[in-house]
């Protein structure tokens, strides 16, 4: 049976049987995999504390090729993120990131760019405490992650007439069509959300800015509100899974 080595992000785990756990990882080289960690709930398990979500780990697992469920052989920390549960806002954002990965990624489908985006996002979330910054990081992740898995919104021209976009004024974003709609085409798209030209430009910048520089981009509250509506509508139209963790945003005590 082949043995697989990978660097991975722990997404979540479920209790299984008497003392085992099924753990979902997003691996850099092998994509999303589900593995059984035998005896993981026992006090003396060598896995126990290393299977919590959000950490970056090195995993060794084995099983038949293209199996639905592998067996975990070893797990070691590469980057611990225990601080995620020190702040509820931070915790909810990290949950959202892993939930989106669980919903959108197919098992055994490698996507190193999506892995790097998720890892960089969790790293930023682990260091951040301000709600506005966390909102921004989460939306930055949405755009980049969706783009890496094949859903890049059209932001440089009208998605309907393919014409150029005005530099200023009010545009719209149609999630089903997957991009910006110019003022002339706007009446044909009743469900499109309003988006200013400034917010559209900002969204385009999000697709090319490095993660390390994302925090410095800092949109204004108005632009953040506009791009949040557009991104959520776009994500919902493409992923079509209700994000449970999202309703807890802003519910810190």
């Amino acid at each position: 049976m082949p043995l697989y080595n990978d660097e991975a992000i722990t997404l979540r785990h479920y209790d299984f049987g008497e003392a085992d756990r099924i753990v979902s990882f997003f691996g850099r080289r092998h994509g999303k995999v589900r593995v059984v960690a035998k005896g993981a709930r026992k006090l003396k398990s060598r896995f126990a504390g290393r299977l919590e979500p959000f950490h970056k780990v090195a995993i060794v697992y084995f099983g038949r090729e293209n199996a639905n469920l592998y067996k975990l052989s070893n797990v070691d920390f590469r980057r611990t993120r225990a601080a995620m549960s020190d702040e509820l806002e931070r915790f909810h954002r990290a949950c959202y990131v892993t939930e989106l990965m669980e919903a959108a990624l197919r098992e055994g489908d490698p996507n190193p760019k999506a892995f790097l985006a998720a890892n960089a996002t969790l790293e930023l979330i682990a260091r951040e405490t301000r709600t506005a910054e966390l909102d921004w990081i989460t939306r930055f992740f949405d755009v980049r992650f969706l783009s890496h898995i094949g859903y890049t919104p059209t932001l440089d021209r009208c998605v309907a007439c393919r014409g150029g976009l005005p530099e200023t004024g009010q545009l719209a974003f149609d999630a089903a069509k997957g991009g910006i709609v110019c003022p002339a085409c706007r009446p044909k798209f009743k469900s499109a959300v309003a988006l200013s030209a400034g917010a559209a430009k900002f969204m385009a910048k999000m697709l090319t800015t490095e993660f390390g520089k994302a925090v410095r981009l800092k949109p204004s509250p108005q632009i953040l509100r506009e791009i949040t509506s557009a991104i959520i509508a776009f994500r919902n139209s493409r992923i079509q899974v209700k994000m449970n963790s999202e309703r807890f945003f802003g519910s810190d005590v």
């Binding site: 919590e52 979500p53 959000f54 549960s85 020190d86 702040e87 509820l88 915790f91 810190d252 005590v253």
Partner: peptide, 15 residues
């Protein structure tokens, strides 16, 4: 002492 358990404990301490 899981992520979920820690977050719950944090919430309780706050309320």
């Amino acid at each position: 002492p899981t992520m979920d358990g820690e977050a719950t404990a944090l919430y309780l301490s706050k309320v």
